[in-house]
Each structure stands twice: as C-alpha cells, then as structure tokens.
Nucleic acid binder design. Sequence first.
DNA 1: CCGCATCCTAGAAGATACTG
DNA 2: CAGTATCTTCTAGGATGCGG
Lengths: 135, 135
Amino acid sequence: MSDLDQGSEAETLSARFERGNLFAAPCPSRDVLSHVSSRWGVLVLIGLQTGTYRFSELRRKMGGVSEKMLAQTLQALVRDGFVHRVSHPVVPPFVEYSLTPMGKEVAVRVAGLADWIEENLLRVLEAREQADQSS
Amino acid sequence: MSDLDQGSEAETLSARFERGNLFAAPCPSRDVLSHVSSRWGVLVLIGLQTGTYRFSELRRKMGGVSEKMLAQTLQALVRDGFVHRVSHPVVPPFVEYSLTPMGKEVAVRVAGLADWIEENLLRVLEAREQADQSS
DNA sequence: CCGCATCCTAGAAGATACTG
DNA sequence: CAGTATCTTCTAGGATGCGG
C-alpha cells in the first residue's frame, strides 16, 4: 500500500509500457528496479543464489539488516515474483525463502554488477583519492 | 565529507578489503554500489553510454530529475571515477560529461540489469497481480 | 521464531531563488 | 548554462512491543 496501487491494473499499464522505459518518469519499471537494486534487495538476491534460507539465517548472513527492513525487502521481492516464500505452519514458526526462476534471472545480473564492484573496489578507491586531492 | 572519510586512507581499507565484500557491513563497496545503483545513478550511466552530453541535455533526457539531484549524482560518479567531466571556461558555461573506461565497464552491467527489467516488465506485473489477489 | 504495527528521526529528495 | 544555497517535504530505516 505504498507506491503505485491505484485501480489502474497491469492491463492499462502494459498498453503504455509494453516494454518498460526507465527514462519515462511514470514507468513502473523504475519501481521494480528500486526493489531489485535497493540496499538490501541486492544482498537478498545474491544471498539466495546459493539456496534456500530461513528468515534469521538470511538476517545473520548479511551484515546490519534490521528485522523490519529484511521483512520489507522480502515482501517486495515476493510480490514482484522474484522470491518464493514457504511458510510452514508450525510452532515455532518456520519460513523459508528461495529464488523463483525469474528471481534467478535477475540475480545473475545483480550479482554481475556486485561482483564487478567487489573485484574493482581498489581501482575505485584509488580514483577517489586522486579526485579528493585535486579539490 | 560524508561516510568513510576518516584519516584512514585506501591503504588501510585495502588491507581489510582487498576484494570488496558486500556482506560485510562496513565495506566501502556498499557505498560504491549505492552510487551506481541509485535511482539517478543508473539512468546517468545508461544515458552516457551513447556518448557525451551536457548537463541540461542529460537532465532533459531523463524524466523527472531535479537539478540538484543530477548534480549530486554526477559528482558522486565523477569522484568514483566512472564519469569524466570536462568544463570549458567560457561564458555561458559549457560542461560535458562522458563515461570513463571504468565507467563503461559498470555501465554495461547496469544496463544489463536495466534491460532485463524493461524487457520482462510484463512478467513482473503479472506476478504482482497474482500476489495481490491472494491477499 | 517470524514478522506485523507503531512511533520516531536522519537523511534523501523536491522546489525555488540566486551567482559566476 | 551550470551549478550552489536554502528551505521544506517525504521516505527509508531503526527501535520497540506484540501476536501467532
């Protein structure tokens, strides 16, 4: 109940954005991108590439997420069809998260970007030093 | 003058993060990622893939950026060494932005992700509909 | 154990006005 | 034209408490 939940359903949208266009301000693709490339969205997608995890497992796996943000992030990704959620109705609760086929496709792209950054971190930090000196 | 500008220079950081690790909370790679995957960062990188642009050209090209946010985004990308800025000292001012070699490398990844989303928007929107119904 | 609801604050982001 | 400065608005995100 946050962003684009007006009555206009996908039908109407697809008429105007058969293929998404990120450069058009009102295109829902921006919304999807924001979920996927959000601070925690990236980490969840990458984290789930290795398999199925429980909520707290996932939480422990990634440094510094609050319960709330992880839950929120997961909800968005589940809603967009990237993450599969299985809730076992037992007590204590037991919920598992994994990537859907669609989720795996995006995860590959996200991981590609993330890996590049991790591998080239030093280059970037060096560039920063230079930039900072000439200021 | 924002996040990780303590006296500890890249030297110290590289000792602990020779290769970045996004799952470690204090790793600067998160910072870099946030610039690159930010709402406007993505659009700038993709927009500049086609060539060199002036500030207002770029601003017109992407829907809905404020002057301030574009300037801010560009500064971050310039500092990280992804974008090259050339300022011609004439009047009226004339400033051009383009991708550095390093910028081109990330841009490819970012574009890969963005393209996937644009191409598969409908699939995602459909998934959403289903998810929304069963609520 | 999972995760929702509430409250609250810091920083992101927009609008506007002004300068070299 | 290409920004900076300022002011306001909005949202991301953290802390806490509760319920299943």
